[in-house]
Amino acid sequence: MTEERSGEEQSIEMELGEAAVIKLPRSTSLERAGGGLLVSLRPYYEGVIHFTLFLCASISVLVTVGIVVVLLYESIQFFFDVSIIEFLTGTRWTPLLKPQHFGILPLMCGTMLVAGGSAIVAVPIGLGTAIYLSEYASPRFRDIVKPMLEILAGIPSVVYGYLAVVFVSPIIRYVFPSAGVFNAASACIVVGIMILPMIISLSEDILQSVPLSLRGAAFALGANKFEVTVRVVVPAALSGIIASFLLAISRAIGETMAVTLAAGATPKLTLNPLESIQTMTAYIVQVSQGDTPAGTVEYRTIFAVGLTLFLTTMTMNVIAQYILSRVGERYE
């Protein structure tokens, strides 16, 4: 933007000569040719700005294209070496050890375990909080709690990873002595806390957008607050609330640092939350930290895993966005 600004100042300077003679550059003719230098340059100058801004907006499209091209390009090369069937159905994932196995199911299983576990933690608490804030809380209480939730949302994921390792995991091991130092449960709990603010703020927005007239109608029929909330407001907002869950779960799937720290690095096809597992994101971090040379199969695994991750989160986001856009139309 700095360049554009200086460009503008230049053309204003060009015109100053004229402006100094007549107090206001006032042309009697409406035509461009009669309006002095600035007027004759202006269309081009405005055009340059328009084009520059257009480029800025186009970059977002380029980024998407870049993600797709890079992930596909390296993944396709990966699938020259590893059959896509083995990748999708294999039950062992050991690309960094001999003998190598490239079945993504253990990573998928780990990811889904963490996503599901965090949803079990976050959905009830999040929905309850959203309902309380939207329907019951006094404005003063909201003013106190909402900034706290914003702080919770602003805490970096590595901090949650720390919390899992130093605080949550020891508690879990105390309660369940069979649990490992790294376990999926601690990851589920902290990721659940991480996605809480997202569920709360999205669901609360949706609940608030339910028209007052609907509530009024229910109250007028003699329903009490509980009945109005549970039978009228929440059902009316249900599709939006589900969309917010989807967005939050998609966020949990893409969550990296906390999971890497808490859940460990042993890809395993298990649903036991007390065991150490590995998620797709944690695997990418593991490879990135090592010295895997570019161009090898091991290096390309992160692109294949990245592509799987990208497609999974993208699908969930698109579905959620679609649901939300339909909700928006209904009450307009």
Partner: peptide, 14 residues
């Protein structure tokens, strides 16, 4: 003043 406001040559800013 005799000039067409909606002419294609009209400068809208002026």
């Amino acid at each position: 003043e005799g000039q067409d406001i909606y002419s294609s040559r009209t400068d809208i800013v002026t």
